[in-house]
Computed example of a mutant assay.
Amino acid sequence: MSDGSAEAYVAGDAGPGVLLYQDAIGLRPQIERIADRIASWGHVVMAPNVFWRDGRAVDLAPTGDLNDPESRQAFFASGVMDRVHRLTPEIVRADGERWLAALHGLPGIAGRTVGATGYCFGGLAALRLAAHRPDEVAAIGLFHTGGIVTGDPGSPHLELPGIRAAVLAGHADNDSSNTSEQIAAFDTALQAAGIDYRTAVYPGAVHGYTMADTAAYQEEGAERHYRELRELFARTLTA
C-alpha cells in the first residue's frame, strides 16, 4: 500500500505463534477460517496480506465464485500471477522479518520459536523464511506447493541446507506445478540436508485441495492436512 502499511488477520488468544502464508488467491475468509482452525489448537496465528504493495486484501479478493470455471479464469487473468512473481526471494525474506517481528509483538505469544504454514506459493515463502531465520522458525508446513525444485540457480530446494525447522510437505498427486520427479528430488534434498521431515502425496488431490472456496477443494485431503499440521506443531512448538 502507498503508506507502507500491511494488514493481517490474527486469530488466537495465547500460545506459540504461527505465521500463515496465503495462497495466490489472497487473504480472504477462507484463509481466515484456516487461521481460526489452527488457533483452536492453542496458537496465536497471523496471516499477513503478502500482496500489500498491490492493495488492500478486500480490493484484491475475488468477487466471483471460484467454483465457476469462467469466474476463476477471469480472476486469474486479472493479474494474480503478476503479483506472485513480483514477490522475489529478497522481498519474501525482507517481509518475513517484518511478519516475524509483528507476530512476536502480539499479546499472548508464548515461546521464542514459531511455526509457519504456507499454501500454494506460500509454501515457498515459508521455506525461504525458515532458511533465512533458522533460529526462530521451528517448523514449516507446505501444502500443494509448486515449483519447489527447478533448474534455476535460485530454486527453493537449494535453501534446505540452511533450515533447522522440521518440514511437513503435503503434495497433491495431480499437480502440474509439482510433478512426481520434483517431489522425489525434494525428498532427496531433504534427506541430504539432514532435516526432520515428513512428506506425502495426497491421493486424488489437485493443486489447491485445502481451499474450500474453490473447485479444487478435497475434504479428505484438507482434513488430513489439518491433522498432520497439528501433530507437527504439537511436537515442535512449545510455550
Rank of each mutant, 00 (worst) to 15 (best):
R98A: 14
A130M: 11
V84S: 06
S155R: 02
V50M: 13
T179S: 15
E32H: 10
P156N: 10
R83K: 11
L229E: 12
L60C: 09
G146Y: 00
G118P: 03
N67G: 15
G194F: 08
A116K: 02
A215H: 09
G12I: 03
L129H: 12
A234L: 10
D68W: 07
Y209C: 03
E159F: 05
R53C: 04
R72N: 07
E136Y: 01
I91F: 08
G208Q: 04
A185K: 07
D135H: 11
G141S: 14
V45A: 06
P134K: 07
R72P: 00
V50K: 00
L87F: 04
R56F: 06
R33Y: 08
A130P: 01
A130S: 14
R72H: 08
L229S: 13
Y226R: 10
Q22M: 15
D175E: 09
F143A: 09
R53H: 12
R198F: 13
G146A: 06
A139K: 00
T236M: 07
L103S: 06
P134F: 05
N67P: 01
M211K: 11
T117W: 02
V137H: 00
V137M: 07
I31G: 00
N49G: 04
I38W: 03
T210M: 12
D54E: 15
D82A: 15
F143L: 15
A94S: 14
R86H: 13
A125Q: 08
L27M: 08
S2D: 15
I183V: 13
Q191K: 14
S40E: 12
D59H: 09
S2K: 14
H85T: 11
G204S: 10
L106S: 10
H104W: 13
G17M: 08
H171P: 00
D65F: 06
P203Y: 07
D65G: 03
R133L: 11
I148K: 01
A74S: 11
T199L: 11
G208Y: 01
N174V: 06
L106Q: 15
F76R: 01
V45R: 00
E181N: 11
H104V: 06
D68E: 12
L190V: 09
G208I: 05
P107E: 15
G194N: 08
I163D: 02
G170I: 05
M81Y: 14
G204W: 04
G221R: 00
G17P: 01
A192V: 04
M81C: 04
H104C: 06
A110P: 00
N49F: 02
A125D: 01
S78V: 05
A139S: 10
L103F: 09
E228A: 13
D95Q: 12
L60P: 01
S71L: 06
L129W: 02
G79V: 09
G170K: 08
A184R: 12
R33Q: 14
V114S: 04
D54C: 03
